[in-house]
């Protein structure tokens, strides 16, 4: 009837004739990856992210030296022995970059997972309940949204002095869950008013089952998007806090590398690679996550769960 109806009708013509039973979960996961892979931008992101994860996991095998070994010459230029030169403290820059990937990847994923978890829990329950409590949560979430995150992180980190990675993950999660919760809440609200959710209630389903089996699976792509966005923010925030010297400055990470580079006046000594390399890695890691996000739109598409392969 409408032009949209026309196109759905057109799509419906392609009803597959053969269907070979319900899909198994492994196949669903595989097809999810294939879905992301099918978007060129996301493909670049997957390759980049894969490279960084490999770097982090196999750091002991890949890195030419220990990251904390400061027995080399100070502020050396690039050479065969030290491809990216050495730091002002006499450490190998390349090894530091490789080991540093561990912190960024770990913080990104850990903070991303926790922030997303809170966002999902708050978003779902907040979207599903229709009481005064909803208004209170609304206010709290909005408060967390408008309060500038980095200054809040800085203040908390300043009180918790040198708390290390755990502290950084904590402050990133505290400040990072709200935007996801808001998005997921509005999606929950729109889904809960759909007929199929009411129908599930008519089918005698418990509230928990309605939320987790009917509503949640329809938000897969939003949740994944939220995870990648939270992880990106976490990686950037972690680097920022460490750059200010608010983390544990003795660990080797891209953020602390920049902190030491700035403090040892790498700018004046012309050690541009010490500034350039860690920042580029942070940007590339963050970019890879943003790029993958271009491909997650298809994840809530039921076609992923089709029994027959295309």
């Amino acid at each position: 009837m409408t032009s949209t109806n026309t196109s759905t009708a057109l799509a419906n013509r392609g009803v597959p004739a053969e269907i070979d039973g319900p899909a198994n979960p492994l196949r669903v996961v595989w097809r999810a990856i294939a879905t992301i892979w099918s978007v060129p931008k996301a493909r670049i992101g997957v390759v980049l992210l894969g490279a960084f994860i490999a770097l982090a996991v196999f750091a002991p095998l890949i890195a030419p030296y220990s990251a904390t070994d400061n027995s080399f010459g100070r502020s050396e230029d690039m050479s065969a022995a030290h491809w990216l030169g050495t730091t002002a403290a006499g450490q190998d820059v390349l090894s530091q970059i490789i080991w540093g990937a561990r912190v960024s990847v770990f913080v990104g994923f850990a903070a991303g997972i926790f922030a997303t978890l809170i966002a999902v829990l708050v978003g779902l329950s907040w979207g599903y309940i229709r009481t005064v409590a909803g208004d209170v949560i609304n206010f709290v979430v909005n408060l967390f949204l408008v309060i500038p995150a980095l200054p809040l992180m800085i203040v908390i980190a300043a009180y918790l002095q040198n708390g290390g990675i755990g502290m950084i993950i904590l402050v990133v999660v505290i400040t990072g869950w709200a935007s996801g919760a808001r998005v997921l809440r509005s999606q929950t609200q729109s889904l809960r008013s759909r007929d199929f959710v009411t129908a599930a209630v008519f089918s005698g389903e418990s509230p928990g089952r309605v939320v987790f089996r009917e509503i949640l699976p329809n938000m897969t792509s939003l949740i994944v998007t939220n995870f990648f966005a939270a992880a990106t923010a976490a990686i950037l925030a972690e680097a920022g806090l460490e750059f200010l010297g608010l983390g544990d400055t003795t660990i080797v990470s891209w953020g602390t590398m920049l902190f030491w580079a700035q403090n040892s006046n790498a700018l004046l000594t012309g050690q541009w690679i010490v500034l350039f390399a860690p920042g580029l890695c942070i940007s590339l890691l963050a970019t890879s996550l943003s790029l993958i996000n271009f491909g997650v739109d298809g994840l809530s598409n039921p076609r992923l769960r089709e029994g027959a392969s295309r």
Partner: peptide, 9 residues
Amino acid sequence: AFPYFWTAL
């Protein structure tokens, strides 16, 4: 995706 401080540096 650039960290602010890196662009600045």
